[in-house]
Amino acid sequence: MINPKIVIVDYGVGNTHSVSNAIGSLGYKKLKISDQEAVIKEADALILPGVGAFEACAGNLRERHLDTILGELVLVKKKPILGICVGMQLLATDSEENGLHAGLNWIEGHVKKLQLPPEYAVPHVGWNNVKFNSREPLFSRNSDDSNFYFDHSYYFSCDDKYVAAFSDYGIKVTAAVQRDNIYGVQFHPEKSQTSGLKLFRGFFNSI
């Protein structure tokens, strides 16, 4: 789609402005940050940003009834959605971050603490290579040696069929998941310079 209506879902925590800056720089004019049902319903594409602890994020989503609003749009109307970082982890069944908390369960999987050999620092912070299992649609414009910016202590553990890309950090860290119209990336495309902007372009072009 050339000029889709994009809504960045605001659920209280999250670097919404950073995401909006990055997407805006690609020339998308119909771009909104909102938690209002009426605005979200009009969207052609949804972004679930993330910087937050799982419990606070999941709690905020429910408090604002965004779980049911988004559920209807994504699962019934098949609107494409891209979760970023904890926004991607929210797609999972549950997370063990500070106790066990239920997620949206749109992609079956569990969010687990990174348990790594001692030479690996946790959180996993910095620019890391990503290997693609499936290039379409997210990575269609990215080259094989693309670097993305990661910043997380927990990772999405799920069936290989949902893993679109992974990264090597002592273990295979799920970097991207996809299932039908539901996409998620563990890294921050809005903070990955050209590589990240290409990913956004790939996502919006595919809808």
Binding site: V13, G52, A53, E55, A56, H152, S153
Partner: peptide, 9 residues
Amino acid sequence: AALLFGDQC
């Protein structure tokens, strides 16, 4: 802050 935004923040 860590409980709300995650320790990575």
